[in-house]
Design a protein around this nucleic acid. Structure first.
Lengths: 231, 231
DNA sequence: ACCTGAACACCGTTCAAGT
DNA sequence: ACCTGAACACCGTTCAAGT
């Protein structure tokens, strides 16, 4: 929004930082060499001195987000104890932190999936998670499976086409009620589920689906299952 | 590849079918109004008579994939029995079928996550899954959570930046062994895990990570957990 | 060394025109 | 009705040129 004064010289970090900002604010589609350059107060071609091209920029975006998770995980761990933690609590915290970062950058999971090169930073995450699991008594085989289970879940939850924002209109008109009636005709179970969840949550609740609660439920489902497999 | 003779008149279905083909063959980036039109033997502007624009095309792509899952699920169910199946087997089959379709169209999950409008076809899926769950004794509350758990998992697994294709070079040179040694320095647990999995799988296995097996493991983890919550 | 302007081959989309 | 050609505002990227 505000014109960038930008007296600092350009750098890979500054370019990537501005690109993340742009993607957060206007979506990944707005991240254009030309628009990004304009946001930095520079011409498009200047970016090529710091990144080989658009592909490298996108890979850099992924790396930046992955790195952000590292920082957030370290910050969360710093507040905790000195290591008496068990694997379960450690991984739970890590997944919640990763989710927070993904929610800040909702374009990130889709971008990760579409890149062919796998970002170097994720190996560092895998290593940390493996250390926790092996320290908790996991075999490498079971740890491998845990890695997939938890990783796919963190990525997938951001992708879900569910829980649209509650209608922003006047609450008195209650267009949702009319929608529900129409929906009940053709999608009876879905309508009943939404009605039931709304009723249980009370009128005060905005929307009927708290995706953070759903995320934690699924996360615990996986952690429970892994703990049981561990024996 | 082959020039399209295309004497049939254009239609929304034909356009979307060609778009899916193009995305499968060359990636979502290749799906361009102009290139899609060329594949259909027509000019770019002709597409606008069947779809309002690029956004509608992308939404249509998602709908097409979602519809494909429907067809595949029905086909898989037709081979089975007449309904004596329990919820677990039914959902397991459904998730495996959905995964098959996603693997055929690896661009689909990322596209779904990036679209703001939620495709109408997914409601039909939710309805079918809910019917199965409620028929199996689930409350709407628990069924809601199952919906999120299973849905995010199917989407997330395709997104995972793991299990790169095995190196295509000569197997005798074994560059993987050298990579492993270098990796062991900085990522000891990860290197040990890969080495352990390769050893267990035997030399004959291509790559060290069978993502289908990993998927089914995670799927069963979730189904087990849901069955336990059901009581 | 870092940045730029002009240029090229591509986009999505509009619009007036063809049949 | 369905399709088209020319045009407009945008892309990523190259290259020779500036400082």
């Amino acid at each position: 929004m505000t014109a960038r004064t930008s007296r600092k010289p350009l750098s890979r970090e500054r370019v990537l930082g501005a690109a993340v900002e742009l993607a957060d604010a206007e979506g990944l589609g707005a991240v254009t060499m030309r628009r990004l350059a304009a946001a930095l107060g520079v011409e498009a071609m200047s970016l090529y001195h710091h990144l080989p091209g658009k592909d490298a920029l996108l890979d850099g975006l992924v790396d930046t987000v992955v790195g952000e998770i590292d920082v957030a995980v370290d910050a969360a761990a710093a507040g905790g104890d000195g290591g008496a933690d068990d694997w379960r609590a450690t991984l739970r915290r890590r997944c919640l932190t990763a989710r927070e970062v993904m929610l800040r950058h909702p374009w990130a999971p889709g971008l990760m999936g579409s890149r062919s090169a796998i970002p170097a930073g994720v190996y560092v995450h895998y290593e940390a998670i493996l250390a926790t699991l092996v320290g908790g008594g996991f075999s490498y085989h079971l740890a491998h499976r845990a890695l997939h289970a938890l990783g796919s879940m963190v990525l997938g939850f951001v992708q879900e086409p569910f829980s649209p924002a509650p209608p922003a209109g006047a609450p008195e008109d209650d267009p949702a009620a009319a929608d529900l009636a129409a929906m009940a005709e053709v999608l009876p179970h879905l309508a009943a589920m939404v009605a039931s969840e709304i009723h249980d949550a009370g009128e005060a609740m905005l929307g009927w689906c708290d995706s953070q609660t759903e995320f934690e439920f699924t996360l615990d489902l996986l952690l429970d299952g892994l703990a049981r497999r561990l024996g």
